[in-house]
Write a protein that binds this DNA or RNA. Structure first.
Length: 568
DNA sequence: GCCGTTTTCGGCCCGACTGTTTTCAGTCG
């Protein structure tokens, strides 16, 4: 008998206990321990419950004796006595208010003590001016009101390419100020996470105040959230927040280093620096003994002073990259330029919006050597032979480029494939994927995928989890069993580059790589414009620590044939 | 509450901005 909690639920619980501790003015380092543990659990590669079941909780950094015992108690009994005791006199509704930007535990407590029931009640009372005497000044109340508006408008997170596009516009605007010498993305956008919350931007300039003033005039701005001497936050009309940090050019490397890494990466690096006698911040690296300040124009130098390699931004999550950088053993990650072809594309023959020839020409223009034309295998709609003829024809007419015949075949809910083997055998590359019955139980789903992989005609498992970012969760399956099977059968796992998929997700890519699995990075293009989305799949692969050799479509056509045997 | 090549106690990353604070608390990243 045990109770189920997702990683997110456990993380939220620990964050809530941290809030309770903050209200009670507990030791700040205890508070931090809860938040650190929560963050670690939220970003775990595997389900915490699975790790608990195999008795390996002690493999998780940041979980000591006490937190491990609490988590054990949680999974066994469904609750934690200590958590209940410590939150006994804390009103539950407090936690509703923590989602409002600018409202932390202390403010939330004041609101809860005033007898406000929930978010909507709060909104109503502020509008009606009924919150005087709550121990909150007018300015604070106005700030909360604005926070509520912002929270309501804020699309939770945005897709990576959307964020990248907005950031590009902001950076273009910044460069219109003559004093701006350099400008880049920072934070989760620079680390290329699949989805991004806030957009962080850096600028190098000797006139930070002027640049902040210029930033306040960014096109599309709704209002200025805050503005200081060299940092500022604005909210755009679409509800997205943009942070700007400015440093003079000689400190630009320090700035990039400080605001690129994830929280845990930064803590690791700065702790390490302290042991070596340095205090690291965006204002320079200070030698503690002499007080000497090292200023760096480039961030590589910050790491070099600490006798480390400079980890690529995508790796700065404290997932082993600090150790690798210290040992000078960072992987040489795959790059967009390494990609030679695209193994998953669609045309007018299924749900694509361009002909095979148009797709081939555009792919060639982008420098690719080949594509797999993998239309859906609609069994009653597709004239397979006629389509193969057309592929042949395009191969004759588009010179120096190869269209490989393929199909994307549904794995039916009953574990059969959408079309019979004789159809599969007519094609050079077969991708399989789940498009229906996403909510099957884990065991059944795992068996369903493995059955499909065991078909000797099948080459690639496409968008394996079926997730749609910001829309729906992926399927539940025993991924480690599947990865082992993919490896044993010599099949390929797809990293789907389409922006709302990015599937496999980066954490599972890393896990699959441990099993020695090889990957393809494919755009799943349905339009010629989609063919250039490859870079987002490459970002996922890089976040999963993939090098060139892990990716089959870095191979030129001649060598690809050694892996995809039916390719002529 | 966690952690260890200064180890089982005594430390724990660093800084910006806002409010009303004349030295600091709260929030955020």
């Amino acid at each position: 008998m045990s109770y189920n909690f997702t990683n997110k639920e456990v993380a939220d619980l620990l964050h809530n206990i941290s809030a309770v501790y903050q209200i009670k003015d507990f030791n700040q380092f205890q508070i931090r321990a809860y938040d650190t543990a929560a963050d670690t659990i939220e970003h775990l590669n595997s389900e915490l419950k699975d790790i608990w079941e195999t008795g390996e909780l002690d493999s998780i950094p940041g979980l000591g004796e006490k937190l491990r015992a609490y988590i054990d108690e949680l999974f066994r009994t469904g609750k934690v006595k200590h958590f209940e005791e410590v939150s006994e006199k804390v009103p539950d509704n407090l936690f509703h208010f923590l989602v409002i930007p600018g409202v932390g535990p202390k403010t939330a407590m004041k609101l809860a003590e005033t007898g406000i029931k929930d978010f909507h009640d709060l909104e109503k009372r502020i509008k009606e001016g009924k919150l005087e005497g709550a121990g909150l000044s007018e300015k604070i109340l106005a700030n909360i009101a604005r926070g509520i508006e912002e929270y309501k408008r804020r699309s939770d997170r945005i897709l990576l390419p959307v964020a990248a596009e907005i950031a590009k516009d902001v950076i273009d605007h910044l460069f219109k100020h003559p004093s701006v010498k350099r400008a880049d993305t920072l934070g989760s956008l620079r680390r290329r996470l699949s989805t991004v919350g806030d957009i962080d931007i850096s600028a190098a300039s000797d006139k930070p105040f002027e640049v902040i003033e210029h930033f306040k005039k960014t096109p599309g701005i709704s209002h200025v959230v805050e503005a200081g001497d060299r940092t500022s936050t604005i909210a755009l009309r679409n509800g997205i927040r943009v942070d700007l940090m400015v440093q003079p050019p000689e400190l630009y490397g320090n700035l990039l280093q400080h605001f690129t890494g994830g929280k845990n990466h930064n803590i690791r690096v700065r702790s390490l620096a302290l042991k070596k006698g340095y205090s690291v911040s965006d204002n320079g690296t200070k030698e503690l003994k002499s007080g000497k300040l090292h200023k760096f124009t480039d961030e590589e130098a910050v790491y070099k002073l600490l006798e480390m390699e400079c980890p690529p931004p995508e790796l700065r999550e404290d997932q082993g990259e600090v150790e690798a950088a210290l040992a000078h053993k960072l992987p040489n990650l795959v790059e967009l330029e390494d990609i030679k072809g695209d193994l998953h594309t669609h045309s007018l023959w299924s749900d694509g919006r361009a002909s095979i020839e148009e797709m081939a020409k555009e792919a060639k223009r982008l420098g690719r050597e080949y594509i797999v034309m993998s239309d859906h295998s609609y069994p009653n709609l597709l004239d397979f032979k006629k389509r193969l003829k057309e592929i042949e024809h395009v191969n004759d007419s588009v010179e120096g480029f190869r269209v490989i015949s393929g199909l994307e075949v549904n794995i039916n809910a009953d574990m059969t494939l959408q079309v019979p083997d004789e159809i599969l055998q007519m094609h050079e590359v077969i991708l399989v994927s789940i498009h229906t019955a996403f909510r099957q139980p884990k065991e059944e789903m795992t068996k369903r995928i493995i059955r499909a992989l065991e078909n000797p005609n099948v080459d690639i498992l496409s968008h394996p989890t079926g997730r749609m970012l910001l829309e729906r969760e992926g399927i539940e399956a025993d991924w480690e069993v599947i990865f082992q099977k993919v490896k044993d059968l010599g099949k390929t796992l797809e990293i789907n580059a389409f922006p709302n998929r990015l599937d496999l997700p980066d954490n599972l890519v890393r896990k699959a790589k441990e099993y020695g699995v090889r990957f393809s990075i494919d755009t799943d293009s349905h339009h010629i414009n989609h063919l250039s989305l490859m870079e987002y799949g490459v970002s996922v692969a890089r976040r999963g620590w993939c090098v060139k050799d892990d990716i089959v479509n870095t191979l030129p056509l001649a060598e690809l044939k050694s892996i995809l045997k039916d390719v002529k």
